[in-house]
Design a protein around this nucleic acid. Structure first.
Lengths: 333, 333
DNA sequence: CTTTGATTTGAAAGCGTTTTCAATGTTGCG
DNA sequence: CGCAACATTGAAAACGCTTTCAAATCAAAG
């Protein structure tokens, strides 16, 4: 009992018109006499005809789907962006092909290629590192690519971000204003542009502005996991830090809980401020102070930008910077 | 400077063979003389030919993409499943079209239709409620549908889950064993099958086994948000509950933090046990005791099952039940 | 050398749309 | 009533691949 598929041809026959006409009514083309349109619509309804998007894609060279490369859906920072992306995509009738990259360069390139093979109309890339190889692939892509919540030091691609340097500087200044002199900088891999080119820069700037010498013993490079943060406590205490700026919320929750579990009072003896303002900041106790970012909007704006690019509309500014803020909760004084 | 696309025809011409032969080598068909294969491969490489998946999909009636309907990517329970799904999908060369449904029946039906229009080879559905309308759509779909971490009271679709009734019963029994008599049941909407048909059933069973009368004043129906949980404290105290079973981790974090913030000691004065064993359970303080579920595996197994269905392989059992456990952390005695 | 059977190959017909271009209908106006 | 101008329609050619089927080639056996 193989399910029978009804094609545009069937509709044309039943309605006694040509395929072209059916195609017109399906696509809302106005050049169809109302009476004809009605007749066709009735047949479509009666036969329960549904246009085959693949055939449509082949003929029109538009698939109305965009590729989204995400490090890990399970990471709430990125999934928040993804939610913004999907909502706007849906609003503009696009679908999302979502793939996890684990920030693995090889996998990213491979995924990018299959996305291009699938003829996506555009691509949104999230990830902390844009390698040269990736940059090359972006260039060769006929589908526009925009980066969401992700930086490329070369600034070759359209992107949507906040001003990380300023945000981190402000966060660190806040810590300094509270009297902290030894402030740890805790981040993911330092070979990622966002860490060495932006966050660290903001950190150094704040120190410099306050006349505090930079000490690389206070820089902790680790990976973005709760566990990694949690196990940082001994080291943090060892260098005599009294505060920390952390580049990721889950990581921050880890360092905070690690501290607390070791008997260090947060924020009494140690302040921590984090970066992404995800739900997590509210779940932990004490609640974490954080740089605030319009997560959903970063995704949404990136997708909106992509729609323009896909439409060949001229966009005034390719790299958009959204506003950030600082939210004081209970992990800082 | 429109980017030129090279087609199978170009390759055929350059290699002085027919399209059929090129197609064969691209698809790894063994009926090609090694020398020919080599020649074609060289041309493919030289021209940087990449097969157009859309055309391929039209011709072969297979798109190697599956649709995934998820309530909200931002919900870590579901995103954990999604991660399992994507990994296995990738392993079998499939891509995922991911769409958020917000558990909104209308949106689900609509999304389902666009997925079918896009000719996905299969569909994975996540959501707490399978409405009649949805069930109808599933039936009419020529692509197989499997439910992941989601129940359908009619059991009409293949699915992958744990034994919710038993798991909840065990969790509640645990609470009872600790001496609690008034145990709250906190869940999302009771019109969802998973709540009224499974979790509540398990709850009642545990009570009955212990000879404790069921009292519907102890049943709290709310939505799956942190805030909702947090604001439950007054009500919880009012009915004199000393423990709660909660159907969702974020919700549970909310009730626990709400309790704590109101000065109630967890677990000293009030125990809470949650359902999904996501990362969140470890982030909050006290850490939450939970039913454990193989989240990643539920997604992975669902996807694996789907690949079999898509291949028309016979599967021994359509509804697979994965093992659960109980993890004691610090929110219970 | 033939024959025979197996291996390789190519021609061409789809797959289900969109889109172009020409043909046909229709309307308004003098 | 005739004609220009515009509205509506249809025929057929793509789109880029897979797949079937028959033709061509080849190797081994007689």
């Amino acid at each position: 009992m193989e399910k029978q598929t009804v094609t545009i041809y069937d509709v044309a026959r039943e309605a006694a018109v040509s395929m072209a006409t059916v195609s017109r009514v399906v696509n809302g083309n106005p050049n169809v006499k109302p009476a004809t349109r009605k007749k066709v619509l009735e047949v479509i309804d009666r036969l329960d005809y549904r246009p085959n998007a693949v055939a449509r894609g082949l003929a029109s060279k538009k698939t109305t789907t965009v590729g989204v490369i995400i490090p890990d859906v399970t990471n709430i920072y990125f999934s928040s962006l993804a939610r913004g992306i999907d909502d706007i995509a849906m609003m503009y009738k696009y679908n999302i092909i979502l793939t996890n990259s684990d920030e693995n360069g090889g996998k990213e390139v491979q995924v990018l290629n299959t996305l291009m093979a699938k003829q996506v109309d555009g691509i949104i890339f999230m990830g902390n590192q844009v390698t040269d190889e990736l940059r090359e692939e972006f260039k060769r892509s006929k589908a526009p690519v925009v980066l969401a919540g992700s930086v490329d030091s070369e600034k070759a691609q359209p992107s949507v971000n906040i001003d990380y340097v300023a945000a981190v500087a402000e966060a660190v200044k806040n810590l300094i204003d509270h009297g902290n002199q030894k402030i740890a900088f805790v981040s993911g891999p330092m070979d990622e542009a966002i860490n060495h080119d932006y966050r660290l820069k903001g950190y150094k700037k704040a120190l410099k502005d306050a006349g505090i010498p930079y000490d690389d013993k206070l820089v902790f490079e680790t990976d973005y996991t709760y566990k990694a943060g949690q196990s940082l406590e001994p080291a943090l205490s060892a260098v005599g830090a009294t505060a920390a700026f952390v580049g990721d919320d889950e990581l921050a929750a880890g360092v905070m809980n690690g501290l607390t579990d070791a008997g260090v009072d947060v924020p009494g003896e140690f302040e921590v401020i984090t970066s992404n303002d995800t739900k997590l900041t509210e779940l932990v106790r004490p609640k974490m102070s954080s740089i605030t970012q319009p997560l959903y909007d970063i995704g949404a704006v990136a997708m909106r930008l992509l729609t323009k690019l896909m439409n060949n509309e001229t966009v005034e500014e390719n790299t958009v910077i959204l506003p950030y803020g600082l939210m004081k909760r209970s992990s800082t004084k």
